[in-house]
Protein backbone atom coordinates (compact mmCIF):
# COMPACT_ATOMS: atom_id res chain seq x y z
CA UNK A 1 0.00 0.00 0.00
CA UNK A 2 1.29 3.46 -0.92
CA UNK A 3 1.16 6.48 1.37
CA UNK A 4 -1.49 8.08 -0.87
CA UNK A 5 -3.68 5.00 -0.54
CA UNK A 6 -3.14 5.07 3.21
CA UNK A 7 -4.26 8.70 3.45
CA UNK A 8 -7.21 7.96 1.19
CA UNK A 9 -8.38 5.16 3.50
CA UNK A 10 -7.41 6.78 6.73
CA UNK A 11 -10.86 8.19 7.53
CA UNK A 12 -12.51 4.80 7.13
CA UNK A 13 -9.67 3.22 9.09
CA UNK A 14 -10.09 5.65 11.92
CA UNK A 15 -13.84 5.20 12.05
CA UNK A 16 -13.60 1.40 11.89
CA UNK A 17 -15.35 1.13 8.56
CA UNK A 18 -12.79 -1.02 6.71
CA UNK A 19 -13.18 -4.72 6.07
CA UNK A 20 -10.70 -6.89 7.92
CA UNK A 21 -8.46 -7.42 4.89
CA UNK A 22 -8.04 -3.73 4.09
CA UNK A 23 -7.63 -2.94 7.74
CA UNK A 24 -4.75 -5.39 7.98
CA UNK A 25 -3.13 -3.73 4.93
CA UNK A 26 -3.44 -0.30 6.50
CA UNK A 27 -1.99 -1.52 9.80
CA UNK A 28 0.85 -3.16 7.93
CA UNK A 29 1.65 0.09 6.16
CA UNK A 30 1.47 1.95 9.44
CA UNK A 31 4.04 -0.38 10.96
CA UNK A 32 6.44 0.07 8.02
CA UNK A 33 6.10 3.76 7.14
CA UNK A 34 7.49 6.28 9.65
CA UNK A 35 5.85 9.16 7.79
CA UNK A 36 2.32 7.68 7.96
CA UNK A 37 2.93 6.52 11.52
CA UNK A 38 3.74 10.14 12.40
CA UNK A 39 0.59 11.29 10.62
CA UNK A 40 -1.48 8.82 12.64
CA UNK A 41 0.21 9.84 15.91
CA UNK A 42 -0.34 13.54 15.27
CA UNK A 43 -3.97 12.95 14.38
CA UNK A 44 -4.49 10.84 17.47
CA UNK A 45 -2.93 13.42 19.78
CA UNK A 46 -4.67 16.36 18.09
CA UNK A 47 -8.08 14.74 18.40
CA UNK A 48 -7.40 13.83 22.02
CA UNK A 49 -6.60 17.46 22.75
CA UNK A 50 -9.72 18.47 20.92
CA UNK A 51 -11.85 16.24 23.11
CA UNK A 52 -10.11 17.71 26.18
CA UNK A 53 -11.22 21.23 25.36
CA UNK A 54 -13.66 22.29 28.07
CA UNK A 55 -17.20 22.55 26.89
CA UNK A 56 -18.55 26.09 26.48
CA UNK A 57 -21.37 26.73 28.91
CA UNK A 58 -24.42 28.86 28.25
CA UNK A 59 -24.70 32.07 30.23
CA UNK A 60 -26.87 32.03 33.35
CA UNK A 61 -29.65 33.97 31.72
CA UNK A 62 -29.86 31.70 28.69
CA UNK A 63 -33.03 29.86 29.73
CA UNK A 64 -34.90 32.93 31.05
CA UNK A 65 -34.09 34.73 27.77
CA UNK A 66 -35.29 31.74 25.80
CA UNK A 67 -38.52 31.55 27.79
CA UNK A 68 -39.05 35.24 27.13
CA UNK A 69 -38.52 34.76 23.39
CA UNK A 70 -40.89 31.81 23.29
CA UNK A 71 -43.46 33.84 25.18
CA UNK A 72 -43.15 36.52 22.48
CA UNK A 73 -43.60 33.88 19.81
CA UNK A 74 -46.86 32.86 21.47
CA UNK A 75 -47.96 36.49 21.65
CA UNK A 76 -47.14 36.93 17.98
CA UNK A 77 -49.38 34.01 17.14
CA UNK A 78 -52.18 35.48 19.19
CA UNK A 79 -51.86 38.75 17.33
CA UNK A 80 -51.97 36.86 14.06
CA UNK A 81 -55.11 35.10 15.21
CA UNK A 82 -56.71 38.42 15.91
CA UNK A 83 -55.40 40.17 12.87
CA UNK A 84 -58.87 40.46 11.34
CA UNK A 85 -60.23 41.97 14.56
CA UNK A 86 -57.24 44.30 14.69
CA UNK A 87 -57.93 45.56 11.17
CA UNK A 88 -61.58 46.14 12.00
CA UNK A 89 -60.60 48.10 15.09
CA UNK A 90 -58.21 50.19 13.00
CA UNK A 91 -60.99 51.06 10.54
CA UNK A 92 -63.23 51.98 13.47
CA UNK A 93 -60.62 54.28 14.97
CA UNK A 94 -60.10 55.95 11.59
CA UNK A 95 -63.86 56.53 11.25
CA UNK A 96 -64.07 58.08 14.72
CA UNK A 97 -61.07 60.27 13.86
CA UNK A 98 -62.79 61.55 10.71
CA UNK A 99 -65.98 62.29 12.62
CA UNK A 100 -64.00 64.17 15.23
CA UNK A 101 -62.34 66.21 12.49
CA UNK A 102 -65.71 67.34 11.15
CA UNK A 103 -66.99 68.00 14.65
CA UNK A 104 -63.96 70.03 15.75
CA UNK A 105 -64.99 73.47 14.32
CA UNK A 106 -68.28 73.23 16.22
CA UNK A 107 -66.54 72.02 19.33
CA UNK A 108 -64.21 75.02 19.48
CA UNK A 109 -66.90 77.14 21.07
CA UNK A 110 -67.53 74.56 23.80
CA UNK A 111 -65.29 74.84 26.86
CA UNK A 112 -62.88 71.97 26.71
CA UNK A 113 -62.46 69.94 29.84
CA UNK A 114 -59.72 67.37 30.34
CA UNK A 115 -58.68 65.14 33.15
CA UNK A 116 -55.18 65.51 34.46
CA UNK A 117 -53.34 63.97 37.31
CA UNK A 118 -54.18 65.66 40.60
CA UNK A 119 -51.98 68.66 41.21
CA UNK A 120 -51.28 70.03 44.62
CA UNK A 121 -49.22 73.11 45.14
CA UNK A 122 -48.35 74.54 48.49
CA UNK A 123 -48.24 78.28 48.85
CA UNK A 124 -44.72 79.60 49.10
CA UNK A 125 -43.60 80.99 52.42
CA UNK A 126 -44.33 84.68 52.72
CA UNK A 127 -41.71 86.75 50.98
CA UNK A 128 -40.22 83.71 49.18
CA UNK A 129 -39.09 84.13 45.63
CA UNK A 130 -39.47 80.37 44.92
CA UNK A 131 -42.13 79.32 42.47
CA UNK A 132 -44.73 76.74 43.38
CA UNK A 133 -43.88 73.53 41.59
CA UNK A 134 -46.78 73.83 39.13
CA UNK A 135 -45.22 76.95 37.74
CA UNK A 136 -41.77 75.54 37.22
CA UNK A 137 -40.64 74.55 33.77
CA UNK A 138 -41.95 71.18 32.71
CA UNK A 139 -44.57 69.42 30.65
CA UNK A 140 -47.99 70.83 31.31
CA UNK A 141 -50.56 70.25 28.66
CA UNK A 142 -53.34 72.72 29.10
CA UNK A 143 -54.06 76.36 28.86
CA UNK A 144 -53.61 78.17 32.09
CA UNK A 145 -54.79 81.66 32.37
CA UNK A 146 -54.09 83.77 35.39
CA UNK A 147 -56.04 86.98 35.64
CA UNK A 148 -55.80 87.84 31.96
CA UNK A 149 -52.22 86.57 31.43
CA UNK A 150 -52.27 83.52 29.23
CA UNK A 151 -49.71 80.66 29.35
CA UNK A 152 -50.40 78.29 26.56
CA UNK A 153 -50.01 74.60 25.94
CA UNK A 154 -46.85 72.61 26.15
CA UNK A 155 -44.27 73.84 28.55
CA UNK A 156 -44.75 76.51 31.11
CA UNK A 157 -41.38 78.08 30.62
CA UNK A 158 -41.97 81.51 31.97
CA UNK A 159 -43.97 82.61 34.85
CA UNK A 160 -43.54 85.73 36.79
CA UNK A 161 -43.26 85.16 40.50
CA UNK A 162 -44.03 86.86 42.73
CA UNK A 163 -46.71 88.25 40.46
CA UNK A 164 -46.89 91.95 39.97
CA UNK A 165 -50.35 92.12 41.40
CA UNK A 166 -50.65 91.77 45.18
CA UNK A 167 -53.64 89.40 44.81
CA UNK A 168 -51.33 86.52 43.79
CA UNK A 169 -48.90 86.60 46.68
CA UNK A 170 -50.30 83.34 48.02
CA UNK A 171 -51.65 80.62 45.78
CA UNK A 172 -52.95 77.14 46.44
CA UNK A 173 -54.18 74.90 43.70
CA UNK A 174 -55.76 71.52 44.16
CA UNK A 175 -57.17 70.26 40.96
CA UNK A 176 -57.72 67.12 39.11
CA UNK A 177 -59.53 68.92 36.33
CA UNK A 178 -58.35 71.94 34.49
CA UNK A 179 -60.58 73.74 32.12
CA UNK A 180 -59.69 75.85 29.17
CA UNK A 181 -61.65 78.49 30.90
CA UNK A 182 -59.65 80.72 33.24
CA UNK A 183 -58.22 78.60 36.01
CA UNK A 184 -59.65 79.17 39.45
CA UNK A 185 -56.93 79.95 41.85
CA UNK A 186 -57.69 79.84 45.52
CA UNK A 187 -56.30 82.78 47.20
Amino acid sequence: MSCDQFIERYTDFRDGLLDSETRAEVEGHLADCACCERYHRVMQRGLELLSDIPSAESSDDFMPRLRHRLYNVDCGVTEGRRSFGGSAALVGVAAVGLLALFWLPFAASVPLEMELAAVSVQPPPPGSADLPSLFRSGPFVSTLRVEGDSYTDGYLTEFEWPPASAVHTAVAIEASYLRSEPAHLNR
Binding site: E8, T11, R38, M43
Partner: peptide
Protein backbone atom coordinates in the same frame (compact mmCIF):
# COMPACT_ATOMS: atom_id res chain seq x y z
CA UNK B 1 -19.24 13.68 3.85
CA UNK B 2 -16.43 11.14 3.72
CA UNK B 3 -14.38 13.15 1.30
CA UNK B 4 -14.83 16.39 3.28
CA UNK B 5 -14.01 14.65 6.53
CA UNK B 6 -10.89 13.11 5.04
CA UNK B 7 -9.71 16.48 3.74
CA UNK B 8 -10.56 18.19 7.02
CA UNK B 9 -8.57 15.60 8.96
CA UNK B 10 -5.60 15.95 6.61
CA UNK B 11 -5.62 19.69 6.94
CA UNK B 12 -6.03 19.44 10.71
CA UNK B 13 -3.04 17.11 10.94
CA UNK B 14 -0.96 19.45 8.80
CA UNK B 15 -1.77 22.42 11.05
CA UNK B 16 -1.32 20.74 14.42
CA UNK B 17 1.59 18.49 13.36
CA UNK B 18 4.44 20.94 13.99
CA UNK B 19 3.29 21.84 17.49
CA UNK B 20 2.59 18.30 18.66
CA UNK B 21 6.07 16.95 18.01
Amino acid sequence: VKSRLNRARNKFALIVGPMLE
